[in-house]
Design a protein around this nucleic acid. Structure first.
Lengths: 237, 237
DNA sequence: GTGGTTCAGTGGTTCAACCACTAACAGTAT
DNA sequence: ATACTGTTAGTGGTTGAACCACTGAACCAC
């Protein structure tokens, strides 16, 4: 790895490549409790510097994939019981297509939590946030950006920092795949309708309405995404 | 808030100390878009090596606190729109006591999602998982370990990997604070009752019952925790 | 057995140097 | 004036070698 013998496209940093490489190796071929080679050996195997390997290992540690013990070594953790949302995100991007089961997981959780938070937001929202909502609807951003902003406003109005962070997770994924969804004009108008209706529910402080409005649009979204997915991959839907 | 308050001193690694230091500095005194000093300057300021600083910066990057741009520098991100659950966790442990608002956030989200997942689990659980549930109830672990295991089983039975990872987040926190909760014998028997009832609901595949049983115990838990908290900090409850 | 010592192997940290990228600027050609 | 080009300073990215700190196992003395 010392010299770029070929004009390869190295868009990622070296330690990021090592993160992906080791993550795949760990998930696919190793088991909890297994010991990873020493930092020196990994560095030698990959023909990179030990410091670079260490930066990659620090990231893998934060993903919940490994545990680094001073004086002992590096051990594989059970990602089912120690993995976090960052690992989930990486699993999405490791493959070139998002696995269908992962997609289902995502939409299932989303449908559970978002309507409830919209209901809570309707009770806690203040004038300033109402105005922000109106300006989001009126501005000239793309519908994708608007929708992301609306959900962020729901989180802000809910006054729940944990939901704010949870939403960041959803949005980071949706930002990458959402453009596909909004290529369909029907989906665009459906979201615009959702934004308008939710604003009214917020203005009147009607939590039940906020809940149902949000639930309905998520169910619509779900159907559309499944339809799209099974159209692209007829054997998986 | 670790259990072993005696005997174990602060033996954090140097780069971990730097993570905490920089995280506090960023959250408390800096704003999104601000530029952090260069790696070389930070290393000089803290009188540590640049490689050590870099390992800390890699972690801060994964927390969503900073963005590192090759050739440009290190920039503060808006943690409200880029922070993740790991950052939320760090915010809990940065202070010596868990802030009340954070506690509320946690319990609010937990109460929304866990009963729904229990209902889903009741529909997807298989014989093997039923047996695992029974063995959890019968074994001799502490009630804290049992309760963590029961929730893990709910996640496993739900067949939702994302919820599995979300639960890891909750459990990592509950593992550190839960022993306080279970010091109360009433709370212990309440959880044991929950485990038995949920097992029956799972056996009969009754999703509504699984939902309400889980919701009830979470509401009980919530009240107890709030009561405990306002007893310790009378001015905040 | 018990307790202390040594030793090899591991992660943690340091140092100095160089590579690769970015922005800003000055100079040039058009 | 405008657009292009090369230079340069400052930044993060990577390297190599060395040493420090911790762990477990083997060994030894009692």
């Amino acid at each position: 790895m010392k010299k770029h013998t070929l004009g390869k496209l190295h868009k990622n940093t070296l330690h990021q490549q090592i993160v992906s490489l080791l993550a795949q190796r760990i998930i696919n071929t190793m088991h909890p409790g297994d010991k990873l080679p020493s930092e020196r050996d990994i560095a030698a195997d990959l023909d990179v510097n030990r410091a670079t390997v260490r930066e990659a290992l620090k990231k893998l540690e934060m993903l919940g994939l490994i545990e680094i013990r001073h004086g002992e070594g590096i051990f594989i953790k059970d990602y089912l019981t120690s993995g976090n949302l960052e690992l989930f995100k990486m699993m999405i991007y490791l493959n070139d297509t998002i696995p269908f089961s992962i997609l289902q997981n995502l939409l299932e959780i989303r449908k559970i939590i978002v309507p409830q938070m919209a209901a809570i937001a309707s009770q806690n929202i203040n004038r300033e946030e109402i105005q922000l909502f109106e300006s989001i609807i009126e501005n000239n951003d793309t519908i994708l950006e608007k929708d992301l902003a609306v959900h962020q406003l729901i989180a802000k109005a809910s006054k729940n920092l944990l939901y704010m962070f949870l939403l960041n997770f959803f949005n980071q994924i949706f930002r990458d795949f959402g453009y596909l969804y909004f290529e369909n004009p029907d989906n665009q108008t459906r979201s615009q309708k959702f934004h308008r209706e939710l604003l009214e529910a917020f203005k009147s402080g009607n939590s039940k309405k906020a809940f149902s409005i949000t639930q309905n649009v998520l169910e619509y979204t779900e159907k559309r995404i499944y339809a799209y997915y099974s159209q692209i991959y007829p054997d998986r839907g």
